[in-house]
Amino acid sequence: MKRLSARLVVILACALAGAGASHARERAATITILDGQATLIHAATRLLAKEGAAIEAEDIVETSSSSALMRLEFDGGGTLDLGPASRVMIRPQLASAGNGVLVYVLEGWAKLTLDKPGEQGPVLLACAPLDVTGLARELVVHVKGMEAELFAESAPVQTLVMNKAGKPEPTKVDKGAFLARRADGSVSVTPRPVPAFIQAVPRAFMDTLPSRLALFKGKDIKLDAGGKLSYDETQAWLNAEPRLRTRFLARWKPLAQDEPFRRALVAQMALHPEWHKVLFPPQSAGQLASQPGRKPAPHPVISSEALKP
């Protein structure tokens, strides 16, 4: 009886330690304003966003097309405002970008404001068309595919813009100036934003709003589940640029156990060929020998061009 009791104590202790670890969130930012609907994708789980919710490194935040404003305040200072139909990842680990990345913008509208003038990092804001490597105060960026528009609102911004040859090219955007990177790779920098950009900027970006971070300090906001993730809902991330999309191989591998998700991955394999080795791992000689007469499952045909990084 004593032996059983001791064993129960160990089991309970392990369970409590595991429970504590599962709730020990490494908070990178906090949602302090939410005017509209938004979702949070943590690991392979979709949650309904709320004000006060903690955002961890590599969490994905997506606003709906009807959202007016979502504000994230970073621990350590700085804010990120998101407009409607925007998709971002917070503090991603990107190859060759160091540890300075605050946000990756997949698409939509974002306004990044730093508290410390002159703050620098390997990459502060990243997206497929360009990276921001130096920011003195704030910027507004709009991303759509390989097109990007950037407004250096109150101070110069240093960028690396993908040129027509697919190489990053240093480009400075002076205070008040506007950079446009088009889908064909052409880049222009003008002294002020074009009228179409000014008209399209979310109205909420023009308001000066005080910090609300103190209102949520010490609070543990529980989020409701938002339903199972489907392939269509993750496709834009799965098909993103290689330095980002490879992050999802381990993260979303459990989703591939769902048959519809797996079928869609296979059907679109040319768009994300790195999933081939996950869905069809090579069998060892011992595994093949233990299955005499069994024909290997057919693999999707992928061109050599698609397999290139």
Results as ranks from 00 to 15, higher is better:
residue 133 T to C: 09
residue 68 A to M: 09
residue 125 L to E: 08
residue 114 L to Q: 09
residue 100 G to F: 09
residue 119 E to R: 15
residue 117 P to Y: 13
residue 112 L to S: 03
residue 133 T to E: 04
residue 127 C to D: 08
residue 84 P to A: 12
residue 139 L to Q: 12
residue 139 L to H: 09
residue 134 G to D: 09
residue 85 A to R: 10
residue 138 E to K: 11
residue 71 R to K: 05
residue 84 P to I: 02
residue 136 A to G: 13
residue 135 L to C: 02
residue 78 G to F: 01
residue 82 L to E: 01
residue 68 A to V: 14
residue 74 F to S: 10
residue 138 E to T: 12
residue 113 T to R: 13
residue 118 G to E: 06
residue 114 L to C: 00
residue 140 V to P: 00
residue 107 E to G: 14
residue 92 P to W: 03
residue 131 D to S: 13
residue 89 M to D: 02
residue 70 M to R: 03
residue 103 V to I: 12
residue 135 L to M: 08
residue 127 C to L: 01
residue 121 G to F: 01
residue 106 L to H: 13
residue 107 E to W: 00
residue 101 V to H: 06
residue 129 P to A: 09
residue 99 N to D: 15
residue 110 A to N: 07
residue 100 G to H: 06
residue 121 G to P: 04
residue 118 G to T: 06
residue 84 P to K: 06
residue 88 V to S: 02
residue 69 L to W: 01
residue 86 S to V: 03
residue 100 G to Y: 08
residue 101 V to Y: 03
residue 101 V to C: 14
residue 103 V to R: 02
residue 145 G to W: 11
residue 77 G to P: 03
residue 77 G to C: 03
residue 141 V to K: 01
residue 128 A to Y: 11
residue 70 M to G: 12
residue 145 G to M: 10
residue 69 L to H: 05
residue 109 W to H: 06
residue 127 C to H: 05
residue 142 H to E: 14
residue 71 R to D: 11
residue 110 A to H: 07
residue 111 K to W: 00
residue 119 E to N: 08
residue 125 L to D: 06
residue 82 L to R: 00
residue 77 G to A: 04
residue 144 K to N: 15
residue 136 A to Y: 05
residue 125 L to R: 05
residue 69 L to N: 09
residue 89 M to C: 04
residue 145 G to I: 07
residue 93 Q to G: 09
residue 117 P to H: 14
residue 96 S to D: 13
residue 118 G to P: 08
residue 78 G to W: 03
residue 73 E to K: 04
residue 111 K to H: 12
residue 136 A to R: 15
residue 145 G to F: 13
residue 108 G to N: 07
residue 97 A to C: 11
residue 84 P to S: 11
residue 109 W to R: 04
